[in-house]
Amino acid sequence: MDWRTLPPLASLRAFEAAARTRGFTRAAEELNVTHAAIVQQVRSLESALGLPLARREGRGIALTEEGAALSAALTKGFEEIELAVAELKGRDEGGPLRVSMTPRFATHWLVPRLGAFWKLHPDIPISMSPSRELVDLTRDHFDLAIRFGDGNWPGLETERLFSAHFTIVASPRLGLKGPLTVEELAEQHWIIEDDWPEQFAYLSRQGLDISSIRRTHMPTEDMAASAVDAGIGIGAAITAMAQDDLDAGRLVALHATEETRLGYWICRRPGPVREDLRTFLRWLRSEV
């Protein structure tokens, strides 16, 4: 890199803050300098580049096409610097791995296995954040995310952990034995989890009309799972999540199919992988 060809770092930093906050005043507050200093740095940058980058608009600023392109590149670059520094500090301070995942994955797959991981690696702390939200790994400082979907998340490196093979399950209390046909399934009372769109897509592909089956809706996955366990009705489950209960006889399989599109994916930011994360990834793969 030839630093002599680049404008001063101070002017790049001032412009990035002004562009991101859409105002000189907010940028000045963020960088703890005066409003005039931000304006001077931005004008100096425009002069060095020979291009207008921003113009005043109301109480804020609007970016030119060139300004928007430069702003996006600078923000990404500064975020990468921030991330690298944070990872180095976290590594030095023994900070935990921060992992975002869906509540279903945490409850039914990861948590039951964590004890085995910590027996092997007691020196690697993990901070779990179960959430349905798609977190921004860079902005929110997560090392890893386990997401449900088709693996298409631009800007992230993704790796399928396992496919989402679905199984229709029931409590042994109901006295049902599989496999059941779609017609027989449609005659049962169903437990439907409201906030699980993948479930609706799967049942529809099996030829089940959710609007016409007898059903009880549950607002959370824990309530839906408890209702199925109690024998109130049958429900859909991702096979990998229900396998322990199926093997132990706490649930019985009524209908199973393979879903090739959807699955649980390991998602991480591109770039070097810290050693404790590398160890955790190896262990995740070994558990599948």
Results as ranks from 00 to 15, higher is better:
157 E>S: 12
159 E>F: 12
163 S>V: 08
171 S>W: 03
172 P>G: 07
198 E>H: 10
202 Y>Q: 13
163 S>E: 14
184 E>N: 02
213 I>Y: 07
180 L>V: 04
223 M>C: 08
186 A>S: 14
170 A>W: 09
188 Q>T: 07
224 A>P: 10
172 P>V: 03
194 D>F: 04
187 E>M: 07
163 S>H: 13
201 A>N: 01
237 A>S: 13
172 P>T: 07
186 A>F: 05
185 L>N: 09
173 R>E: 14
182 V>E: 04
168 I>A: 08
218 M>N: 07
195 D>H: 11
228 V>C: 11
192 I>S: 01
239 T>M: 01
203 L>G: 02
206 Q>F: 04
197 P>C: 00
173 R>I: 11
213 I>M: 08
238 I>D: 12
166 F>K: 09
171 S>P: 14
176 L>W: 09
235 G>M: 06
198 E>W: 08
173 R>N: 11
239 T>H: 11
160 R>I: 14
209 D>Q: 10
236 A>Y: 08
178 G>F: 00
164 A>K: 06
160 R>H: 04
190 W>F: 08
167 T>E: 06
170 A>C: 13
233 G>D: 10
181 T>C: 07
189 H>M: 09
206 Q>H: 01
188 Q>Y: 06
194 D>K: 13
179 P>M: 01
203 L>V: 01
228 V>G: 03
181 T>E: 02
174 L>G: 07
185 L>T: 07
220 T>P: 04
201 A>R: 06
195 D>I: 05
171 S>K: 08
158 T>G: 03
193 E>Y: 01
185 L>K: 05
236 A>L: 15
233 G>A: 07
214 R>H: 09
201 A>E: 10
232 I>N: 11
178 G>C: 00
169 V>N: 00
233 G>E: 06
209 D>C: 06
188 Q>M: 09
164 A>I: 04
229 D>V: 03
175 G>N: 05
214 R>N: 11
183 E>A: 15
202 Y>T: 14
230 A>Y: 02
204 S>Q: 09
193 E>Q: 08
191 I>E: 02
205 R>D: 11
230 A>R: 12
226 S>R: 15
207 G>K: 00
206 Q>D: 00
182 V>S: 00
176 L>D: 12
231 G>P: 14
215 R>I: 06
215 R>H: 15
239 T>F: 10
212 S>H: 13
218 M>V: 11
166 F>V: 09
215 R>K: 15
175 G>Y: 02
206 Q>K: 08
191 I>G: 05
215 R>V: 07
226 S>C: 10
156 L>H: 12
227 A>D: 07
194 D>N: 07
215 R>P: 00
162 F>K: 03
217 H>G: 06
207 G>D: 00
165 H>Y: 02
220 T>V: 03
216 T>P: 04
204 S>G: 09
234 I>P: 15
231 G>H: 12
214 R>T: 10
199 Q>C: 03
227 A>N: 06
221 E>H: 15
207 G>A: 02
211 S>R: 14
238 I>N: 09
237 A>M: 08
221 E>W: 07
155 G>M: 04
219 P>N: 01
157 E>P: 02
183 E>S: 13
173 R>P: 04
227 A>T: 12
197 P>D: 03
161 L>D: 04
206 Q>E: 12
198 E>S: 14
168 I>C: 09
185 L>D: 05
206 Q>C: 12
